[in-house]
Amino acid sequence: MPAILLGRLVLREITRSEGRYTGEPRARLGFGLGWAGTQVYTLVLLYVIGATSEPVALVVLGAGVVAGLAIAIGSSAAGAPQPFATAARASRQAPWVIYPAIAGLLGVGLAGFITKRSADERTRLEALAACEQARRGANEALEAASFDRARSHLQEARRTCVEGAALQEVARAEADADAREREAIQRRAEEEAARKERERAEEERERAEEARRRAEREQKAAARFKDVAPVIARHLQVASAMATQRRWEDAKAALSQAEFALNEFRGTDVQRSERCAAFLAHVVRLWPDVDAGLEQIRQRREDEERRRQELREAAEERLQQMREAAEERRQASLRVQCCDGTLSPSCLCGRSSYRGCCSRHGGVCGCED
């Protein structure tokens, strides 16, 4: 716009100067470039708006058609209305401005309309593809009995599907998902009830089998106890006799055998029988006396071992003393050895003073080997 305004002002000044000012070609060039730039920017803006809004594109296209019709009517009809005649004169005076503008309006309007239609069609196709993909994912999720995932796909389909038939199909799929989910819940409940019933039956069978095995064990234990009861009684009798005689180790051996035989019946009904209870009471009654007797034996043996150890130590000490005394006597009986290698005939090594010994033989140098 500044180029257009300044170009008109300069051309007007050059025209009024009657030859004093020059530069008209450059002024017209600037004026023309201003118009061209304005038209280009305007057409680009109209195209951008028309490409995002179909009504604007139709308005721009209609404006170009109306302008072209006005110029055509004004140029061809002799009695054309004043606006049409004015448009025809303007087109004859500035054809390099009017005709490019009309052509630009037509081109921009048509291009914007086509672009908008193409974008809408592309969006519609993308929505259809997304709708179809969501419906396919919902069907696969329903086949896999994944109802949460199916509902997520159906929500996406409801958001992307725009056609009435597709929306009806989505509604039917949602109803089908609800029905299938109810059936699955009911089926799982029935399966869970059947599983619990099977578990209860299995537990009852196991309890019955355990009761049967326990009864067999009790029968075997009773028969076994009938066989070993005399042996247990004999062991207890021997243990009591050995305890009376203070033969505690023999009493322990017999009592241990009786207790080992009774351990076989622990946890059975035999253990609660009168005879087995009497045996166990007898064992419990004997063990403290046996343990006390064994403790006395252990203490006595420790005392005897300690005394033997003391006697051994005393004997070793006396033997050591005897050895030392013998060594002292032996050392005392040895003769003194003179430094010239001879032995003193009268001096022994055990004396306290060697004065006068080996006085003629070089002195004392030790004892004989």
Rank of each mutant, 00 (worst) to 15 (best):
A211E: 11
H235G: 06
R214M: 03
E249N: 07
A233C: 00
A261G: 11
E259Q: 13
V270S: 10
E183M: 12
A222D: 06
R247M: 10
Q237C: 01
A258K: 00
E210Q: 07
R198G: 02
K252S: 13
I185W: 02
R198V: 06
A243N: 09
K252M: 11
A223R: 15
V270Y: 08
R195V: 00
W248A: 01
F260H: 10
E197G: 07
D227L: 12
K226F: 14
A193C: 00
I185G: 13
Q245S: 06
K196T: 15
A241E: 15
T268N: 09
A189L: 12
Q271W: 12
E203I: 06
A201L: 05
E199M: 06
R247A: 14
A221I: 09
R214G: 05
A211H: 06
R195K: 05
A201C: 00
E218F: 07
V270R: 05
E218D: 09
Q257T: 03
R188N: 12
E203V: 10
A253M: 03
E249I: 03
R212H: 04
E192C: 03
E209Q: 11
R224E: 14
E192Y: 05
M242E: 13
R234W: 09
R207K: 11
Q186Y: 00
V228Y: 02
R212Y: 01
R200E: 13
H235D: 14
E249G: 07
E190L: 10
N263K: 08
R247D: 14
V238G: 02
E206S: 07
Q257N: 03
E202S: 13
E216D: 13
Q245G: 09
W248N: 14
A215K: 12
A211L: 08
H235W: 07
H235Y: 11
E191G: 02
E264L: 08
V238T: 13
A215R: 10
D269L: 08
F265R: 01
A184Y: 00
A241V: 14
R188E: 13
L236D: 01
A194R: 08
Q186D: 11
I232F: 10
R198T: 01
L262K: 03
A223I: 11
A193T: 10
E249F: 04
K252V: 09
R246N: 14
Q271H: 10
D250I: 04
E218C: 06
A222H: 08
R188T: 00
A251Y: 01
A193W: 07
A215V: 06
A189I: 11
A222F: 06
D227H: 06
T268S: 15
T268D: 10
A221H: 01
E191A: 13
E218I: 08
E204D: 07
L255G: 14
R224V: 02
Q257W: 00
K252E: 13
G267M: 06
F260N: 12
K226E: 15
D269P: 07
V231H: 08
I185K: 11
K252Y: 13
E218R: 07
Q237N: 12
E192V: 10
K196E: 15
R195L: 04
A211D: 09
K220E: 14
L236W: 01
E216A: 09
T268R: 08
E191L: 12
T244M: 09
Q219N: 12
S240I: 01
A223Y: 02
A189V: 04
V238Q: 10
E203D: 12
E203M: 11
S240P: 00
R234N: 13
